Simulated assay, not measured.
Amino acid sequence: MSGQRWTDMIVGDRMAVDREFAQEVADSQFSRQEWGLVMTAVEFDIEHPEDDERAKLVADTSKVKQVMPEMENIQSQMNSMTGKSSKKEGRGVFGSVKDALGLGGGGGSGVDEERLAAAEGLAQRYADELQTRLESTGKWARVRSAVQE
């Protein structure tokens, strides 16, 4: 699949959905910064692009787990700014990367499975909104065609 080509076709649509989706993010358990971090780890794919009935834009969230330790740091920093206590000290970007790679030696996975599931669900809702927009603007068929090239 020529992934870069079809994703380039929808940049403007993604920007529009970002604006429209801002309220859903605000209503979620994630800050804007945390959501931005989640989205850096999400890739989009189209399942069954050749089939009008089954074609679906999906959020590949397989890499989101890798950014979860840094999300905890963001939350810790936000808590320290508001005077709330954090369950652990922030370890910085390098500490988070080491933890994500299993080199941190801090014990435990460091990943809140509930927050991970929430992030994955929110990412898929974003993908659904993006697909709806592409369908309503008449771009969906062209994007699906580009995926097949």
Score class of each variant (00 low, 15 high):
I74W: 01
I74A: 02
S76D: 14
S76P: 02
Q77I: 11
M78A: 12
N79K: 11
S80P: 03
M81C: 09
M81F: 09
T82P: 04
G83W: 05
K84V: 04
S86I: 12
S86A: 15
K87H: 14
K87D: 15
K88P: 03
K88C: 11
E89Y: 10
R91I: 15
R91M: 13
G92H: 05
G92D: 05
V93W: 02
V93K: 11
F94Q: 15
G95D: 05
S96R: 02
S96D: 09
S96F: 06
V97S: 14
K98Y: 05
K98G: 14
K98H: 05
A100V: 06
A100D: 03
L101Y: 12
L101P: 08
G102F: 00
G102I: 00
G102C: 07
G102V: 01
L103M: 12
G104C: 10
G104M: 05
G104E: 08
G107Y: 07
G107M: 04
G107E: 12
G108K: 13
S109L: 14
S109M: 14
G110F: 09
G110C: 13
V111T: 14
V111W: 07
E113H: 10
E113T: 15
A117F: 04
A119H: 00
E120T: 00
L122P: 10
A123P: 06
Q124P: 11
Q124Y: 06
A127E: 04
D128Y: 00
D128G: 01
E129C: 04
L130E: 07
Q131A: 05
Q131L: 04
Q131K: 01
T132S: 14
R133H: 04
R133C: 02
L134Y: 00
T137P: 02
T137D: 08
K139E: 04
W140L: 09
W140T: 07
A141C: 01
R142W: 07
V143P: 00
V143A: 03
V143D: 05
V143T: 04
R144M: 09
S145T: 13
S145V: 05
S145I: 07
A146D: 04
A146V: 05
A146H: 02
V147K: 06
Q148K: 10
